Simulated scan of single mutants.
Amino acid sequence: MTKENKKVVDLLNEIIEMEISGVVRYLHYALMVKGPNRIPIVKWFHEQANEGYQHASMMGEKVTALGGHPTLRVSPVPETKTHKVLDILKESLEFEQAALAKYKAVLKHCGDDVALEELIRSMVRMETEHIEEVVKMLDTTH
């Protein structure tokens, strides 16, 4: 494995750890939401958990394609014991922003691997869209 591939594999493994923690995080959020708007919010959190699994799987496939070994670690998921929807959404926003930063870090190491670059750019687009959606959900002025 080249030095550059090693760096990419390390970053992708960090992303896997983060995405798997997102599965745990979003499942927990879905279970904790209460109140009259519960159903659509729970549905959205379940979708986010499923997407985290899919993202982790895609990154794991790329790790093995690059000759690496996918991590078994999971990033810690803090328990804030705050389960109000707006608080959960703020936590979600921070999490999505951190994930976006990780994906952007990989872009710097794609070199001439167009497939890797396009994969990561698509992930940057999705994470950006998640952030935009959460920001809209946090807007209580309307």
Results as ranks from 00 to 15, higher is better:
Arg73Ser: 06
Tyr29Asp: 02
Met137Val: 08
Asp10Ile: 09
Lys43Pro: 10
Lys136His: 11
Met123Asp: 02
Leu119Arg: 01
His109Ile: 06
Lys104Ile: 11
Val24Phe: 13
Glu51Thr: 05
Asp113Lys: 01
Gly52Phe: 04
Gly60Asp: 00
Leu31Gly: 14
Ile88Asn: 03
His55Lys: 03
Leu116Met: 07
Val63Asp: 01
Gln97Trp: 08
Val8Thr: 12
Ser75Phe: 06
Leu12Cys: 15
Leu89Met: 14
Thr64Gly: 01
Val74Lys: 04
Leu138Ala: 06
Lys7Val: 15
Lys6Arg: 12
Leu116Glu: 00
Thr71Gln: 00
Leu27Phe: 15
Met59Asp: 00
Ser57Tyr: 06
Val23Gly: 01
Ser122Asn: 13
Asn50Met: 06
Met123Pro: 00
Tyr53Met: 11
Val33Ile: 14
Leu86Glu: 14
Asp10Pro: 11
Ala65Ser: 12
Met137Arg: 09
Gly67Pro: 09
Lys62Gln: 10
Lys136Ile: 06
Gly111Ala: 11
Leu116Val: 07
Thr128Tyr: 03
Arg121Leu: 15
Leu107Pro: 10
Ile120Asn: 00
Glu17Pro: 12
Arg25Gln: 08
Met137Asn: 08
Glu129His: 10
Leu116Asp: 01
Lys102Asn: 06
Asn5Tyr: 12
Lys136Glu: 13
Arg25Ala: 07
Ala115Met: 05
Lys34Glu: 12
Glu17Ala: 15
Leu11His: 06
Glu133Gly: 06
Thr64Cys: 03
Thr128Ile: 10
Val106Glu: 03
Asp139Pro: 08
Trp44Ala: 12
Ala115Gln: 07
Gln54Val: 11
Arg125His: 11
Met18His: 11
His46Cys: 11
Ala30Lys: 08
Glu17Phe: 07
Ser57Ala: 12
Gly68Pro: 06
Val124Ser: 03
Thr140Lys: 04
Lys6Pro: 06
Gly68Phe: 05
Tyr103Arg: 01
Val24Pro: 01
Arg73Asp: 03
Leu66Gln: 01
His69Met: 02
Phe95Leu: 07
Met1Asp: 13
Val85Arg: 01
Leu86Val: 14
Glu47Pro: 01
Met126Ala: 15
Lys3Glu: 15
Cys110Asp: 03
Ile88Phe: 01
Ser75Thr: 08
Lys7Asn: 13
Ala56Asn: 02
Lys90Leu: 13
Gln54Cys: 05
His109Cys: 10
Leu12Lys: 03
Lys6Phe: 10
Asp139Ile: 07
Ile88Asp: 02
Met59Asn: 02
Leu27Lys: 13
Tyr53Ser: 04
Gly35Glu: 12
Glu117Ile: 04
